[in-house]
Write a protein that binds this DNA or RNA. Sequence first.
DNA 1: GTGGTCTAGACCACG
DNA 2: GTGGTCTAGACCACC
Lengths: 121, 121, 121, 121
Amino acid sequence: MNIAISNTSEKPIYQQLYEQISAQILKGELQSGYNLPPIRQAATELRVSIITVKKAWEELERLGLIYTVTGKGCFVSDLSPSDMLQKRKEIILKQMLIDTSYYKSFGLTLEDVVELLKEIY
Amino acid sequence: MNIAISNTSEKPIYQQLYEQISAQILKGELQSGYNLPPIRQAATELRVSIITVKKAWEELERLGLIYTVTGKGCFVSDLSPSDMLQKRKEIILKQMLIDTSYYKSFGLTLEDVVELLKEIY
Amino acid sequence: MNIAISNTSEKPIYQQLYEQISAQILKGELQSGYNLPPIRQAATELRVSIITVKKAWEELERLGLIYTVTGKGCFVSDLSPSDMLQKRKEIILKQMLIDTSYYKSFGLTLEDVVELLKEIY
Amino acid sequence: MNIAISNTSEKPIYQQLYEQISAQILKGELQSGYNLPPIRQAATELRVSIITVKKAWEELERLGLIYTVTGKGCFVSDLSPSDMLQKRKEIILKQMLIDTSYYKSFGLTLEDVVELLKEIY
DNA sequence: GTGGTCTAGACCACG
DNA sequence: GTGGTCTAGACCACC
């Protein structure tokens, strides 16, 4: 569990949390069955409220990335590599559609975008 | 003035406003000296609050894209084509840096991103 | 808004809330565009926490039954009668599958269940 | 003893246990005098805690479906067929009252419910 | 005034 | 010790 929280970010904390964890799961850094830290422990370590952690965990469960066993803990779901690729693609494409509509509003062509990307990536 | 407002969007309305107008200015659709509609009129037409329009206009002024003449109205600034290109690049790169950091968090390479962009652009 | 809360019920309060409201929407008692009471007002009237109301409203939004306009309030979605029938059926069937599996575990046939239902309905 | 346990279910494990066993007793699958497996053995086989099994057995005793002989084990009670029918009806009706109140909250008539039941039973 | 978020602390059922 | 829920009160952005 390697999480960076920014209190000054525009993004809500719980969203920062589930975005980072979902990325780690879909990259394979957190493997199937991995036992997430108890929400209270995570809350203490990250210096946020229990409810904030809970909200992030709930979103991860809704995405099918983790499952909860009351009284035992939360665990990374058993996803096949193809499931993971599929989910990863879904999540990224969703964001990319927003990004491209922004670029398009400035009149950028695909070539413009690719060129700029190469500069900064 | 061709603006689309979404009430249910996550983006605040004033931000939707100034993003769309700044894009139109930097694309050259709204040319130097163009007289923006009076705040009250814009508010009525767009069915939003006067305060919301005021905030958007203020942000545009802060960006140097428009200037206000008290009692006469707001006008698109006189930017040279190179200034406009420069500003456009600044704004887009600022957003693109955020976008790419998100892609990177999922472990995507430049090639991955370009490929996905080609699919949906 | 006619809601009954039971603090002694096994069901969490937020669930009681969204179940009752979703039922009212799908029965047509709360019509499209109906402005739900502000969460703070609802919390005060129902003598529960703001967060509890928020959680219920969030679930309703997730179900597509209401939508939120920040700064303005929450409103019942514009569902066609066929959409409503569809959603109602989905929700009820989901529960009914659980119920029937319970009846089946006792060896009851469809006829047994129907007969008992007629007795108590 | 043919029991299926779900860790991710909303129902507590001890409840899953006594519901399934009580159903088996009342269906006649477990007959009078049947010696239930020792708590420790059941716990091992079902991969749950001893405490959990104990709680389920206690609930069954409370329902009058089994009795304990200290040092010898737990046995299915000697119920007459009419007693069993009576108890079975009680338990099922109790649950059915909850179920029907839910259906009623959505405005369903007896006919609606019966029709849906026929679809899925 | 409205929703959006967050905190700190509490009680409960469950295992 | 774990998750599940709830409270009361607070600050913020937005309209």
